[in-house]
Amino acid sequence: MQRENISGFITSSLALPADLSHGTARITLLGGTVVRIENHDGIRGFRPDEIRVASGKGEIIIAGEELSLSVLAGEELVAEGTIRGLTLDFEEGDRP
């Protein structure tokens, strides 16, 4: 059993909150202007209309207008702007 699967198994067996397991991104959307992503794996792309954030085996895509990163610190980022969409682009079986 791989390490991630073991941690997932333990989390589900002990009924722990999912965001405690390693590698699980926590996404908070505040209205349509602020997105906060914790436990991400880095920036993959940055344009005023799109921000691509790596998470696990996939990507979190923030689409919108005049997007900016008000905070980019370690495993946490806060994106601001007019948010039009939030896409979770993962391979089947994976989770963000």
């Binding site: 880095g42 920036i43 005023p48 370690g74 980022l77």
Partner: peptide, 20 residues
Amino acid sequence: GLELVRRLNEEGIELFSVVY
């Protein structure tokens, strides 16, 4: 440019008000 931002982020250096 993007690589620089990414690397700084990986090293845990805080960046603020990142805009294009």
